[in-house]
Amino acid sequence: MLLKFKQQSVLPGFGLSFGYTIFYLSLIVLIPLSAVFISAGRLTWDQFWTTVTSPRVLASYRLSFGASFIAAAINAVFGLLVAWVLVRYQFKGRKFFDSIIDLPFALPTAVAGIALTAIYAPTGWIGSFLEPLGIKTAFAPVGIVIALTFTGLPFVVRTVQPVLADLSKENEEAAASLGATRFQTFKKIIFPEILPSVLTGSALAFARAVGEYGSVVFISGNMPMKTEITPLLIVTKLEQFDYAGATAIAVVMLVISFAMLLIINLLQRWVTRNQF
């Protein structure tokens, strides 16, 4: 099998480029990741298990993965909507809005965190309206979801946009000529075509949200058991010189994240099973 790698090609250099790819991936991704496992290996199994299942850590998993999942779900819906509007309609300022989408990518996440906190704090523009209604946003899980939605938006929009733009108009016309209503055309023709890209975008947004740190720590308030996300817990442990404990939690995050991405990829493959 391995020997079959080599194929005749007009552009030579497979060996060199493949070797470089492996080397680069190892250096940048695989070796650091394996270091996490090696470092966690200094703990005994019991120590590892007590660290990663302590109530405070468990609460942080629930918050981190739960808030990330909700944020990714929100982005799936509204990111699709934004992409739809940007692709399907011509309006004044379309290019401007289009470039604003990238802002959460470009902005240092700490800046986003400070900005969001300023707005959603009980004294902020929006927070001061929500506070009398009994809705607490900043320093509560809701605030974390808002921050994660903010950072995840571009992922869905930018993955769905090109797919929507490439959709053939003829398919919609064919559906209409066969008597389908607009809603039926969207549900049965357009949505199945863009579903894979929505899934990919959401998966990316989710993965990013799980690892997000900068924008969350300001708005969350970091109360143990309540608004403490897992990445923050890792930092806390590092500050307490509990390196082994920090890497133990890191290993759990790594495994869960990997499993989630795998599931989403399988889901995507299932969705696209009949397309080429």
Binding site: S168, E170, A174, A175, G179, A180, T181, I189
Partner: peptide
Amino acid sequence: VGERQVGFVFQHYSLFRH
């Protein structure tokens, strides 16, 4: 188009691939 009850065949077939 839906109300006109015409059958339309497109040049590139336009079959629903899913």
